[in-house]
């Protein structure tokens, strides 16, 4: 309980930090008063409402979505190396964005539906391929099908960008996750997807606990393996797809956050997932804040900083604890 409370407190503090820190020098009190009473027309008001709040919201939504999606994916495949990317979501979205750039779509919001469609197609293909042959979508087949499709689509993305230099120049910025590209309308668009994905995640949590006992045990305890697998996969698609759409392909968060949560709370997915909801945004927003401060007046994209800042903590956990084998 103390742990949970302190995690939530840390998240609140991180959000405040994300609202306060930035290139534009604004005092804590002026930022807070702008938040509390919007519409007084000052510079601070504009920056807070048009830049920092959407940015912070993006971090909150994408971070928790990626964390939960990672936990689902690891439970589904019983493989600690599985992140949401294993379902092909990042690679599918990336390829679709490259296609969109090639087609001349320029508006950031124009990429949104392309990315979502790409993620969806990739996830469906991975799941279908992983279910072929005997035994349905078993963990190993799912993981391998995902890895294979990711490699294939990644190759296709590379080929397109290498053949078309203009696309490469545009794409290399999209390909690094960032919290600054989504406006409030984009956030509103993905909101329902995130909500649906979260509901599904809550629904399958108990069944993932059973799946962890092995397939025979899970079935004899009443888990419907096919239903659980399909629902989890759909939840991962909704959550990670939406996160990729608003923040770009942010790696590492989806993979590392579930491990951190597991180290804090043990192997119960009904606890791991709420922890992920809190820990994911902490990691993402802290990384974003650090990125804003590190190379002022420029800013480092969050995709770069999550790796640099999150990995050492992850390494510390892995080294210190007896890491949980799934």
């Amino acid at each position: 309980m103390v742990r949970a409370a302190s995690a939530v407190l840390l998240l609140v503090a991180t959000c405040v930090l994300s609202l306060v820190v930035g290139t534009y020098p604004a005092s804590v009190s002026s930022v807070l008063s702008a938040v509390v009473s919007p519409g007084n027309g000052g510079d601070v008001d504009a920056i807070v409402w048009h830049v920092r709040i959407p940015r912070t919201l993006t971090g909150l939504l994408a971070g928790s979505a990626l964390g939960v999606a990672g936990a689902l994916m690891q439970g589904l495949t019983r493989n600690p190396l599985a992140g949401p990317g294993i379902l092909g979501i990042n690679s599918g979205a990336s390829f679709a964005v490259v296609v969109a750039i090639g087609l001349g779509v320029t508006a950031v919001n124009g990429y949104l539906w392309f990315a979502f469609a790409g993620a969806g197609v990739a996830a469906v293909v991975v799941y279908t391929l992983g279910s072929l042959g005997g035994g349905g979508a078993t963990p190993v087949k799912l993981a391998l099908a995902g890895a294979a499709l990711t490699a294939m689509v990644g190759s296709m993305t590379t080929i397109v960008t290498l053949l078309d230099a203009a696309t490469l120049d545009e794409y290399r910025f999209w390909a690094i996750g960032s919290l600054t590209r989504a406006g409030s309308d984009a956030l509103a668009t993905v909101g329902p997807f995130l909500a649906a994905g979260s509901l599904l995640a809550v629904a399958v949590g108990g069944s993932l606990n059973l799946l962890a006992l092995g397939e025979d045990m899970a079935r004899s305890l009443g888990a419907r393996l096919v239903v659980v697998r399909v629902l989890s996969a759909v939840a991962v698609l909704l959550l990670a797809g939406a996160a990729t759409v608003i923040a770009g392909p942010v790696g590492f968060v989806g993979l590392a956050v579930p491990h951190i949560a597991r180290a804090l709370t043990g192997p119960d997915y009904r606890w791991i997932m709420p922890y992920c909801v809190v820990l994911g945004p902490i990691l993402l927003l802290l990384a974003d804040v650090v990125g804003r401060m590190l190379v002022q007046p420029e800013q480092l994209q969050v995709g770069i900083v999550t790796g640099l800042a999150g990995a050492p903590f992850f390494l510390y956990l892995v080294r210190r604890r007896k890491v949980a084998q799934l």
Partner: peptide, 28 residues
């Protein structure tokens, strides 16, 4: 599952799970 239970030959215990948590999963 309410009527028929099976104890397989080699069930998997997730790392770090406590006895009471493990037993509790039987209530699913």
């Amino acid at each position: 599952a309410q009527r028929l239970g099976l104890l397989p030959q080699q069930p998997l215990a997730p790392d770090g799970i406590t006895v009471s948590d493990l037993v509790g999963r039987g209530r699913h």
